[in-house]
């Protein structure tokens, strides 16, 4: 595990709260993530881990507290939101590829319309990213013609083509057949090796163990425990994380 030196803080959350009506979904989440860090977020379902990762690019609004991404605060200012979304890539559980566009059009859409690149430059970047996830030969196909694993890798390439500083993964392998999970995890691991800042909500404990710098355990809308993966898996401190680990590991 050759982990590079980590950079300065790139994500800062201070006392982030979110309610869905009466339901208190996030209860004062505070943490920081450093540049180049790989953070894996685990926890039982409904614990708020997905909600938290979605507040980081304003897919969900937080009602109180402070989120600062790469020096820009997330607030109601649309320009700030747009600026942050340009620098934060996201990969979804259900891939969410655009079915009416080819793989290459999926990837070049945002660079052309958001970054204002020429089509040639965007396609050059697109091919580069497709090679990075090892499917350059699928560029002309439509998403419906690809397997789940290929679709998720296209989704990763689509996010990477915007050259983001941070990548968010929201359960990227949960909708995949077991044999396709590896190809997606390999792509994520390669990203981590290249020094990308990664926040991933996942149930892949193997990935957490080998790739992550830090594991964050969520329960009932807050961070219960965070530690280096070895320490966390071998010696969980909190009762809740002990119970969770015993349930998923001894099964």
């Amino acid at each position: 595990m050759s982990k590079k030196e980590l950079g300065p803080d790139i994500i800062v959350c201070k006392d982030v709260n979110k309610w869905y009506g009466e339901y208190h979904a996030l209860r004062g989440v505070s943490t920081t993530v450093r540049e180049g860090e790989v953070v894996v977020i685990i926890g039982p379902s409904g614990s708020g881990k997905s909600t938290w990762i979605r507040t980081l690019n304003r897919l969900e609004e937080h009602q109180s507290g402070q989120i600062i991404i790469d020096g820009t605060e997330l607030n109601n200012d649309v320009r700030n939101i747009q600026e942050i979304r340009r620098e934060v890539g996201m990969v979804f559980q259900q891939f969410n590829l655009f079915p009416h566009l080819t793989v290459m059009e999926n990837i070049t859409l945002a660079p052309i319309h958001v970054r204002g690149w020429s089509r040639e430059r965007a396609e050059e970047e697109g091919i580069k990213q497709l090679k990075r996830v090892k499917i350059p030969e699928q560029a002309g196909k439509y998403p419906g013609q690809l397997s789940g694993g290929q679709q998720q890798r296209v989704a990763i390439a689509r996010a990477l083509a915007m050259q983001p500083k941070i990548m968010l993964f929201d359960e990227p392998t949960s909708a995949l057949d077991p044999e396709m999970i590896k190809e997606v995890l390999d792509a994520m691991q390669q990203l981590a090796d290249d020094g990308m800042t990664i926040l991933a909500v996942t149930h892949e404990m193997g990935f957490a163990r080998t790739v992550a710098h830090r594991v964050i355990f969520f329960d009932q809308g807050n961070i219960v425990e965070e530690n280096q993966p070895l320490a966390f898996f071998e010696n969980p401190k909190h009762e809740r994380s002990k119970l969770f680990l015993s349930q998923i590991l001894h099964h």
Partner: peptide, 11 residues
């Protein structure tokens, strides 16, 4: 999800 993916890309 289509809308979310689009705005997450910065559109």
């Amino acid at each position: 999800g289509q809308y979310e993916a689009a705005v997450a890309l910065g559109l």
